[in-house]
């Protein structure tokens, strides 16, 4: 199993903490799924932050702070420093948004911010596209994990470009890869794992489901199934039938 900056995930589901109907339901979703990582953010203190933090800490999962909503390198780097102090972890999910509607990452700024943060001792989890060259550049500046999008954040479209994600897996065989964003259904998450991805990061598909705890559990099971299937070395698809029941020994009855 590929380790994330030396840490093996207890469970390959990384679950977001936003948009749940209530804190109690958020907690149920984590307990039901056994998610190994919780993503969190930083916002202006309004009084609710401390209660939220104590609840998340009690979940006993690994914490992955993000730089969500940042549009410039400076903003993302400053946010990362603030997150490191508040959450006490060098892990940072580096999000640098380039496009307002698609929330597509600004990959040029992303590489630059990743370089600065790596030099500052951060362990960067870059939210990136499925572009191979961007992936190479991110690794070249010190990233040891890549998190390509499946589809735009919150869209629930699944794996928009499975070909590109497969190419990425083949290109970076030793790098932990996470499909981050766009997952809508457990089948999408299972597919990512069947492709050989190491983890799946999702939020909206669970938080906005009618029953978040059940959906979280469904995602966790699908991820586990996909991971097992990948390790079990699936057969190749073929165009024509191939009889599975032996022909030898068949009675002559016609």
């Amino acid at each position: 199993m590929r380790a994330f900056y030396g840490t093996e995930l207890p469970n390959p589901l990384m679950l977001g903490t936003a948009q749940y109907p209530s804190p109690a339901i958020l907690e149920q979703a984590f307990r039901a799924s056994g998610a190994g990582v919780a993503t969190v953010s930083l916002r202006r203190e309004s009084g609710a932050g401390q209660t939220f933090w104590s609840m998340i800490r009690d979940l006993g999962v690994l914490i992955l702070p993000n730089t969500a909503g940042c549009h410039t390198v400076k903003e993302a780097v400053t946010t990362a420093h603030m997150a490191r102090e508040v959450f006490g972890t060098p892990w940072i999910k580096l999000e640098l948004i380039g496009h307002t509607d698609s929330l597509q990452p600004d990959v040029f700024g992303l590489v630059e911010a990743a370089r600065i943060l790596t030099e500052d001792g951060f362990q960067v989890f870059p939210y990136t596209t499925d572009d191979l060259i961007v992936g190479e550049r991110l690794l070249a500046v010190g990233c040891e994990v890549l998190m390509p999008w499946g589809a735009p954040i919150g869209s629930g479209r699944g794996l928009n470009n499975e070909y590109a994600l497969r190419a990425m897996r083949a290109e970076f065989p030793d790098t932990p890869l996470v499909v981050d964003a766009g997952i809508g259904l457990p089948s999408h998450a299972a597919r990512a794992m069947e492709l050989g991805y190491d983890a799946v990061l999702l939020n909206t598909a669970v938080a906005r489901a009618g029953d978040p705890a059940d959906m979280a559990r469904a995602m966790a099971l699908a991820i586990q199934a996909g991971q097992l299937a990948h390790r079990a070395d699936p057969i190749e698809a073929r165009d024509m039938a191939s009889a599975s029941t032996p022909v030898i020994g068949k009675a002559f009855l016609s």
């Binding site: 977001g16 202006r44 203190e45 609710a48 932050g49 702070p65």
Partner: peptide, 10 residues
């Protein structure tokens, strides 16, 4: 001055 605290995130 910005004072930030832990918050929900994806």
């Amino acid at each position: 001055v910005e004072v930030l605290a832990p918050m929900q995130g994806g």
